[in-house]
């Protein structure tokens, strides 16, 4: 199946500051793609480049098969987006704002406004104007505006920033529902990683304007499975002991640490065997990698070997 979005070798600079550095990114139909990065890593720049609020200095972007000019702009009609903070007309209510955008987008379906308000849970805002909305309400209205034309591809920039925990959960459920019921592909940037983990199906990690890692949720889950962290003075000898015990699913991490992924292991028996083999055990503990830890590890590795 053809990709929804393909960014190849995208580079963008602001003056002497390089914001995007040869970015390659592919989003497949049905993905909820989580773009992860620190503040200033280039997340918003990528999203703005996709929707042509910024123009890349170099590289090509293909959206629904269109790469350049009018064709590309035409395909943007199939997208909906909320970039940076949600914007709308201050002096209009939620319903009036949606009416305004229906007129701009040429949407004549009379139910479109009520459907969108109902979908995001803004049916009871009455005559309250956008300028008086809470941040959560603004985010919801931004999403409603983006969803008005029933886009095939939704682009959201830090949509859960500033939301309270209940609003975050509501928002997450909303996005998952859109993805599952309408088959809408979603690109979402965030640095609230636990939330992103709960909704995304693929992740891209960006640092210093470069995508340094892309992986699916299944791939991440495989990496993040629970393990036994064993810290000893002689890891090579410890590995031999593990082999003798018939344990093969383990990995030597550094000069003191081994991660053992076979959780059927009897810890007490292992310690006994290691001590018998004159291996000094300093730590034996169960751990697992969450997305945040994984992100930190990948970014730290990138800091050490930026060109790797």
């Amino acid at each position: 199946m053809a990709a929804i979005l393909q960014m190849e070798n995208i580079t963008k600079s602001f003056g002497k500051q390089r914001a995007l550095n040869h970015v390659n990114l592919t989003i497949q139909p049905g993905d909820i793609y989580g773009l992860i990065g620190r503040n200033g890593a280039g997340k918003t720049t990528i999203l703005k480049t996709i929707v042509q609020l910024l123009y890349a200095d170099q590289g090509t972007i293909t959206l629904f098969g269109a790469t350049y000019g009018k064709d590309y702009t035409k395909q943007l009609k199939r997208t909906g987006s909320v970039i940076e903070t949600p914007v709308a007309n201050d002096q209009l209510t939620a319903q009036q704002n949606l009416t305004y955008y229906c007129k701009i987008k040429g949407i004549v379906d009379k139910d479109a406004i009520d459907d969108a308000l109902k979908f995001v849970g803004l049916t009871d805002t009455g005559k309250k104007k956008f300028k008086d909305f809470s941040l959560g309400m603004k985010q919801k209205l931004g999403l409603a505006i983006a969803l008005l034309n029933k886009p095939d591809f939704l682009i959201l920039d830090e949509p859960i920033n500033g939301l309270d925990p209940i609003a975050i959960a509501d928002f997450r459920n909303l996005l998952v529902k859109i993805n599952q019921t309408q088959g809408m592909t979603i690109l979402i940037s965030s640095h609230i990683l636990e939330e992103l983990y709960q909704m995304a199906t693929r992740f891209g990690i960006i640092d210093h304007g470069t995508i340094i890692k892309e992986l699916t949720k299944d791939e991440f889950d495989a990496k993040s499975r629970e393990y036994i962290k064993l810290q000893v003075d002689q890891p090579k000898l410890a590995a031999t002991v593990l082999n003798k015990m018939g344990i093969e699913d383990f990995k030597v991490i550094d000069q003191h640490t081994l991660n053992i992924y076979d959780l059927s292991l009897d810890n007490a028996a292992l310690v006994e065997m290691l001590v018998a083999a004159s291996v000094s055990v300093t730590t034996i503990v169960r751990e697992h990698i969450n997305l945040e830890n994984y992100f930190k590890t990948i970014v730290a590795e990138n800091e050490v070997t930026p060109n790797a």
Binding site: L53, T73, K77, I83, E84, D90, Y101, I104, K105, I155
Partner: peptide, 18 residues
């Protein structure tokens, strides 16, 4: 004026208007 001071231009320009 409001289009620019409130950045409302982002909505139409990011959804397919040249």
């Amino acid at each position: 004026g409001f289009e620019f001071s409130r950045q409302i231009y982002k909505n139409p320009l990011s959804s397919g208007m040249t």
